[in-house]
Design a protein around this nucleic acid. Sequence first.
DNA 1: ATGGCCTAGGATCTAGGA
Length: 262
Amino acid sequence: MKVATWNVNSIRSRLDHATQWLQTNPVDVLCLQETKVVNETFPTAAFSELGYIAYIHGQKSYNGVALLSRQPLDKVQYGFAPVLGEDRVGDLDDQKRVIAGLWDDIYIVNLYVPNGSSVGSEKYEYKLRWLACLKEYLAALLTEHPNLNVCGDFNIALEDKDIYNSEGKEKHIMSSPTEREALKEVMAVGLKDGFRLFNDEGGHFSWWDYRTAAFQRNMGWRIDHHYLSAGLSDRALSCTIDLEPRRWEKPSDHTPVIMEYA
DNA sequence: ATGGCCTAGGATCTAGGA
């Protein structure tokens, strides 16, 4: 069983890439972030032709997440509120960043964590509030679903070796100590980094800035993750980053990360 | 280098990304 995560930076701009990738990489579930399209305009038909059911949670212009699945998912939920309630969640569901569903006994949570803009900004405070809410959400889910695959664009590189050059990291968005600590707090509910089950090296990245020819120079960051509950990490077989789509013409700035289970 | 590029929306620029 394979689950992949991929921030496509607009599903309409990346439709050919997504369908081409699925044809050579027929994963069971593909988790998309930054679809940037309302549900009515999501290109559902292109994926149903390939045998995928699309569960979509979009908005105009920004954010947006989707689950593409080769079989129907149970208990599909949109946002934090179905688990935590509207009173707790407040404005954190206004941006469409969370979708989840059950494949057999594996509950798959697909996240687009807020970027945060810059350390100390209003958006950074929103990111930290969002991560605190995420911790409560995942803790609640774990009581019902022991096999949890939490994946997506986390917009955080957890360790210095997840960045091509960690100089100045304390002040940089995606690597500042406070947001790293917030993510570690989330993981403390009982989640492990799926990639690190198989690989301890630095130099493995999932995102490269469009500017400065960062991909060609391998100036990347590992910010797209699969986090696994203890029950599920025992069944993990591999976690790989597919660099190929990042080499294609007009690529997303992110590339897929694939988790495989027994 | 408060730089470099890309997307959507709506319009020849701004917001947001990371």
